[in-house]
Structure formats: C-alpha cells, structure tokens
C-alpha cells in the first residue's frame, strides 16, 4: 500500500535537477533586514502603548509641575531628520546610476544631518529642567527619546560604514548595493519612528 507508487504518479512539482552545480538563492538580506525592522517597530509600539496608557490613566498629564517643553529646537531637529530621509534617497538614486561619487556625497550629507540631530537632542537634554526620575512624564520622555537616539546612532554608524567601505573602487555598484539599501531602509525607519514619537511627546 504505502508509497509503493512513488515513481508512477504525476509529479506535483517540477522534474528538473541540476546535479553538481551549487544553487544560488537570491539575495535575501534586505528581506531579513525588513523582518528585523518589523521586530524593532514592535518594541517602539509597545513603548508607545505604555506611554499612552500612562497618559490616559494619570489624573493630569503631564503631572502637575512639569515644565513645558520647548518646541523650537525639537521642531527644527524634526525638519532636519525628515529631510535627511529625502537626502539619503538621493544617494540610492545615485548608486542606481552607478554613480558612487554621488552616493558618497548624499550619504555624507545625511550623516552630517544625523549628527546635527543628535547634537540638538543632547543640547535639549542638557537644557531641560527635569531629569530622568523627576516624574513619570520625564521618565517616559527620556527613555523614549533616548531609545530612539540610540537607533539614530546606529543608523549613523551604518551610513559611516557605507562611506568607509565605498573608498574601495568597485565595492558598491548598481548591482552590488545591499549595504547602501540596508542603511537607507534603517534610516527611513528611524525617521518614521521619530515622527510618531514627536507627535506623541511634543504635540499631543
């Protein structure tokens, strides 16, 4: 009965073999990065949900006596970060045309903008009138922006790594650009998270 007709039936799949030759599967690294970012987004979503719950449960929010947040500097910072997403995309456009020099230029500008964002963030930290443990709002503020800031640092590190590697002739081209795309994808992610974060902490 069992399995005896293995050879005599219609195959449900193809009948082709390529003996010996090593098979090469398509490059899945970008897909993997995307899955990783799904997981990353869930950390942020969890923290956002926690923030919104704290907010809705508290009798007054922010708690009485919390100094008002200045909007000007974070606003400028937000504009810088959002526009950096367009700048880094120009770098992607450049590498599609095999223009490594152009890519380096746009990535360099993005790195600069990211650094400005981080410096602005630190400047804000040093001039805020509350510390990590002042009250619940202050704690969530620092943990959320700090956790995001770590991601900006890592994104910056990725961009600098691309710049470092692209010194070598032919390391990147219009067919070999995983590192560039990964850094860009990560940077967009960091940017989108910031937009939500800014809305939650400063505007809502």
């Amino acid at each position: 009965m069992q399995g005896s007709a293995v050879d005599s039936q219609q195959p449900i799949a193809l009948e082709s073999t390529s003996h010996g030759a090593e098979e090469h599967h398509p490059d899945l690294r970008l897909f993997g990065i995307f899955m990783f970012l799904v997981a990353e987004a869930m950390i942020f979503l969890g923290l956002f949900a926690a923030y919104l719950t704290f907010r809705s449960v508290a009798p007054t929010w922010p708690p009485v006596g919390t100094p008002k947040l200045e909007l000007l500097l974070p606003g400028i910072n937000t504009l810088i970060l959002i526009s950096s997403s367009f700048v880094i995309h120009k770098g992607d456009d450049a590498i599609r045309e095999n223009d490594v020099k152009g890519m380096r230029l746009w990535f360099g500008i993005t790195a600069l903008m990211g650094a400005v964002f981080l410096v602005g963030q630190l400047y804000e930290y040093f001039h805020l009138e509350f510390g990590l443990t002042t009250n619940l709002f202050a704690s969530t503020f620092y943990v959320l922006t700090g956790f995001h800031g770590l991601h900006v640092c890592f994104g910056l590190f990725l961009i600098l790594a691309v710049l470092w590697r692209s010194r070598r002739e032919g390391h990147y081209s219009n067919t070999q650009k995983f590192g560039i795309e990964a850094a860009e994808l990560y940077w967009h992610f960091v940017d989108v998270i910031w937009i939500v974060l800014f809305g939650l902490l400063y505007l809502l």
Partner: peptide
Amino acid sequence: GQPVLKTGPYDYGVAKQGA
C-alpha cells in the same frame, strides 16, 4: 544538486500503480 519532488509530503497509500 536540487532535490526532486516525486510525491507530496503525505501521499501514504495514495496512488496505486498507474493511477
């Protein structure tokens, strides 16, 4: 090389000769 699918994963006692 690449393996060949000759049967589905659960075709126990499913097809007799020629079926």
